[in-house]
Design a protein around this nucleic acid. Structure first.
Lengths: 198, 198
DNA sequence: ATCTTTCTGGAACGGTAGGTCCATAATTAT
DNA sequence: ATAATTATGGACCTACCGTTCCAGAAAGAT
């Protein structure tokens, strides 16, 4: 076998994630993608099938990368601190100066709910996985099963809301204050149950 | 002066709001709009300028209608109950059987943040007005100035998160449970301050 | 050097987008 | 009736969309 230099597939997908994350599915044209990924039309269709196929792949990549943030800190910090740092890391300073793209999964749910139910459901499943991670952390922190489930659902709602505000370029201090308030509520509620017996 | 029968402008705008709310800005084509509004291309451009102009008008109409829900119940119920019913009404049963469109303002922020900053900012301003309404209700309920501001920001985050889940067709009981939890947090926090000290 | 395989650049496709234009129909004032 | 005014239907425009196709360039295998 033989072929011209292979392009770096993973790197190309990363570029695509960045574009889709920033501009959404519909507003990202094939021309935009080809330029950013640095490959030709023909290679694109050979490698990814079509635009929608690439988007599915990007959703998966984003979701894995996003969950990894939480999974890694979970090994190194107490469970509640890991949860907090997941929220804070997503909204604090980033590698890029102006990275207020929210969450690609949330953006997808909103943009495509009435347009492409398959893509919307896929994004929703990934979000559900994150919510399950929240629940696991809360269990580790001592929450009762039902309490953990409720609090995880609440924190996912907070997460989604924070991502919306992020797209509006809310100030970082304001953002952190709201997140801190939400965690204060959850933690004091858990503490209350623990202190005054079961 | 003289002219053929005028079309009902307000009614046409209502139809457009419904479409934009459901499908978003980009995915709503002119053909969709003309059919729903029941008018011809020429009349459309004469009356609204262009698609973007109509969208601006729709954002305003939606925002006013949305705020009216809260303003009206505020006259007839205690402030915290009015706030709660704003959240519950937006996610409980509606006139239409499957009206899981979220909030048009939130949808616009997410869809157009990187596409049309003007429209995104306009939607953001309308959301800020709602947040100010939240704050006023909390003041009426006895919150201190800073406490009211913080809690209003928190509730706006909850509101935005709830709208995202709404587009994912979250079950109504789950939705109400999360909202109830959020309000429980805010109310018990306010009660704690009132009881002990100050 | 030749063959084989893989990727490339670019032309071309049909479809649809938002927007413009104009001849015609409809209505009121005179 | 006639004139003046205004909305209508629909053809038309340009631009771009995602996708397909193909001749040819590049590189390892023989």
């Amino acid at each position: 076998m033989s072929r011209p230099v292979e392009f770096d597939r993973d790197q190309a997908v990363q570029k695509a994630v960045h574009l889709f994350w920033q501009r959404g599915y519909q507003a990202t044209s094939l021309a935009d993608l080809l330029e950013a990924m640095g490959l030709s039309r023909s290679s694109f269709y050979a490698a990814f099938g079509d635009k929608r196929g690439l988007f599915v792949e990007c959703l998966d990549v984003f979701a894995v990368r996003n969950q990894a943030i939480l999974r890694r800190t979970r090994d190194r910090k107490p469970p509640m601190a890991a949860l907090r740092s997941y929220f804070e890391r997503n909204f604090g300073q980033t590698s890029e100066p102006d990275l207020h793209f929210g969450c690609m999964l949330v953006n997808t749910v909103i943009e495509l709910a009435a347009i492409d139910q398959g893509l919307c459901d896929l994004a929703g499943q990934h979000l559900k996985t994150v919510q399950d991670l929240f629940e696991a952390c809360l269990r580790d922190a001592g929450a009762e099963p039902d309490e953990a489930k409720q609090a995880a659902a609440f924190l996912m709602m907070v997460n989604e809301g924070a991502r919306v505000s992020d797209r509006q370029r809310i100030s970082i201090p304001d953002q952190l204050a709201r997140i801190n308030l939400a965690f204060g509520y959850v933690e004091s509620s858990m503490a209350a149950r623990t202190e005054l017996g079961r």
